[in-house]
Design a binder for these strands. Sequence first.
DNA 1: TTAAGTGCAAAATCTTTGCAAATGT
DNA 2: ACATTTGCAAAGATTTTGCACTTAA
Lengths: 139, 139
Amino acid sequence: MDVRDMLQAKGLRRTRARTDVLAILAEARRPLAHQEISGQTEAADLDRVTLYRTLTSLSKAGLVHQVRGVDGVHRFCAHGLGSMACPGNHPHFLCQSCGEMSCLEGQELPWVSVPAGARVTGKQMVIYGVCAQCRDAEA
Amino acid sequence: MDVRDMLQAKGLRRTRARTDVLAILAEARRPLAHQEISGQTEAADLDRVTLYRTLTSLSKAGLVHQVRGVDGVHRFCAHGLGSMACPGNHPHFLCQSCGEMSCLEGQELPWVSVPAGARVTGKQMVIYGVCAQCRDAEA
DNA sequence: TTAAGTGCAAAATCTTTGCAAATGT
DNA sequence: ACATTTGCAAAGATTTTGCACTTAA
């Protein structure tokens, strides 16, 4: 399914900001931080504010999901885009050295019991440390 | 074990900022945000910056641990303080309405496999939604 | 005494808001 | 044509840094 069709299906206008950002996220298949997205050439000339608002609307529409690591940085990941799907129900690994986050696919998050009466909106698990590449660089 | 002894045991000077903040966290037994701590009367007259630095040193010394929810706010929880221990190996629940975070004790975090070669420093899981109190308030 | 910690001022980020101009349907 | 989006400027919020003063050991 095409990125532009996805937008239309969700009732969002197909603007350049949205198509570009969604395409970048779908391509990456791992959660990207605001900064990483704006660094991509396709999004290079998008205003910071526009990027924030774009990510907010994509997120509200359910086209991307949001992860926030121990570093406090928002990261967004596209999912539901056909074969490139990112189910969103898996843990993530955050490298505290290079700041890159990756999906640990194929591992479901456990069911957790919450205090009586609470409504659960979502859950997320982040494993953090140093990735293989950064460990090599250290040595 | 006394809060002041804990500091000494870790080789930290026993200053008012540290004893007060550690006492507040030990008393709360749930992760408190920077703001929640500075709101407490015992810490009311501490400088913002001092509080940040105090939390950093307590964290480095391992006297408190840090959790960061989907809201991106740092929260700190005392642990290892005798009977008030907060093991730190459990999920947390974050109410997105009132912003209060609580420990879901008695539930261990699952073991997760990470990419080969990566070094794991820690992990954390946050369940978010609306707590019972806020649901009542809504209605 | 003297190295560590604190307080104040100021900077650096990250994120949000207001409003006029541009764009999609 | 008309409601949404965008871009710019500016405001807010959070966290960090520099430096002189104070305090614990």
